[in-house]
């Protein structure tokens, strides 16, 4: 019986202490982590997409809750006012690639509903093969100017997206992400306009 109590005691103390340490660490790093996520994942993509923005899209970001496949998620939108005065918004969607999710940040002109630019944000694809979708900006430049009447599927599946040779699975992930962007945008556009007033 004594042994039993000791076991319970020791285990409880260890887990309690480690739980305490972790919660302290979690709260103290939370802010830092969020800024890192913004800095390394979103900022380069946003900067490349809205290179003529007259405002700070990162600072003015807002979130809209929605449902994707019955899961409640929040999507962060980055609004921008471009040099020529037109309003635009950028947000990210994901599609499954070869090594994991491929994130695609897409900037959309709110008036013409056309894609301004797209950039790959995160991926865990094979270096030198799938990773080219991010490193090689000419690949995602094919999205520039596309409207949402386009079919976001690879060409050999009857869509409008070119595959990157040798990286078909990754390209498919990108096209799935783009299709997701289309779906979300068409669904959430009223809310986006509402928020940006």
């Amino acid at each position: 019986m004594r042994e039993m109590i000791k076991m319970v005691m020791v285990l409880t103390i260890i887990t309690a202490v480690s739980g305490g340490i972790l919660s302290v660490l979690k709260t103290s790093t939370e802010e830092k982590i969020e800024s890192q996520v913004l800095k390394f994942q979103k900022a380069p993509a946003i900067g490349a997409i809205f290179d003529t923005a007259t405002n700070d899209p990162l600072k003015e970001r807002f979130k809209i809750p929605t449902k994707v496949k019955d899961k409640d998620i929040e999507i962060t939108f980055f609004p921008a006012v471009l040099e020529d005065g037109s309003k635009a918004v950028a947000f990210e969607a994901k599609g499954a690639g070869f090594g994991g999710d491929v994130g695609l940040m897409v900037g959309i002109d709110l008036e013409t509903d056309k894609i301004i630019k797209a950039r790959v944000t995160t991926h865990s694809e094979t270096p030198g093969i799938g990773s080219r979708v991010k490193d090689d900006a000419t690949y995602v430049s094919q999205f520039t100017g596309m409207g949402f009447d386009a079919t976001f599927k690879l060409k050999n599946n009857g869509g409008d997206i070119d595959a990157l040779s040798g990286a078909t699975v990754t390209s498919k992930g990108v096209s799935v992400a783009a299709a997701q962007v289309k779906k979300l945008y068409l669904k959430l556009k009223p809310q986006i306009l509402n928020k940006m007033k």
Partner: peptide, 16 residues
């Protein structure tokens, strides 16, 4: 978990 949090906070690209 400590390593994970620290890497997320300070070496984010590697964590990714």
């Amino acid at each position: 978990t400590i390593v994970e949090l620290l890497m997320q906070a300070y070496t984010y690209p590697l964590f990714l």
